[in-house]
Amino acid sequence: MKELPELLAFLRRRIAGDYDVDEFGYDAELTDTVLLELLRPIYRHWFRVETSGLEHLPADGALIVANHAGTLPFDGLMLQVAVHDEAHRPVRLLAADLVYRLPVLGHLSRKTGHTLACREDADRLLRKGELVGVFPEGFKGVGKPYSQRYRLQRFGRGGFVASAMRAGVPIVPCAIVGAEEIYPKIGDFPLLARALGLPYLPVTPFFPWLGPLGLIPLPSKWLIEFGEPIKTTPGDADDPMTVFNITDQIRETIQHQLDALRDRRGPAFG
């Protein structure tokens, strides 16, 4: 932990409101000092995340495209710790609108640097040279049943590829192994989920049977790997066929990465 004077200065800034947030609401100081600090023990000791391929992250703007799994989006949080602590940069994730409808979650998401997955925000962040992360499978990926683990779902409409093209930044494929096992989803309450306005309400071996205890993620072993960047050309954004082809290419690359990484890891709870 910090030295006392440093801590006091930090607290004083927080009480006085004397800190900056960017136009997306990103509060870098709060994220680094408090929020990521809470996630680090989970990253290091619970999931024992190992990150590789950091050399593939370029020095300026890029779009990280990753697989999505785990019922609750822990993979986004772990990706954030990985990029922040190992590449020493913030990663700006694009999140579903559901996040911004909900109290608490919405403003925490903005304060940690994330924003709504929409064309304007993606373009703006990439133009500013930020590292932007996206999970194109969306709810189809994060909410898929355990039986379909490590099988990539459909990749939206390729909007993220077009954004990277418009900004002329490379796309970095990223495979995350381990999130699939944290809440093995073996069932769903579709009616109740719809009544609550949620995309799904999962049944796992422990939830809802153990109540809040069932919300503790299982301590699977995680690997995160960044693959070789795929270059883009601005003019291609207006050519749907090129956008589709590159989207497919990225999807296949990540699927191959996932398969290889899963072999390397061995048993999930080993």
Binding site: E23, F24, G25, D97, Y100, R101, G106, R110, T115, L116, C118, R119, E120, D121, R124
Partner: peptide
């Protein structure tokens, strides 16, 4: 609204 881009331009 929660569906809006973070920063509006005149064209949004």
């Amino acid at each position: 609204s929660p569906l809006d881009p973070a920063v509006f331009t005149e064209a949004s």
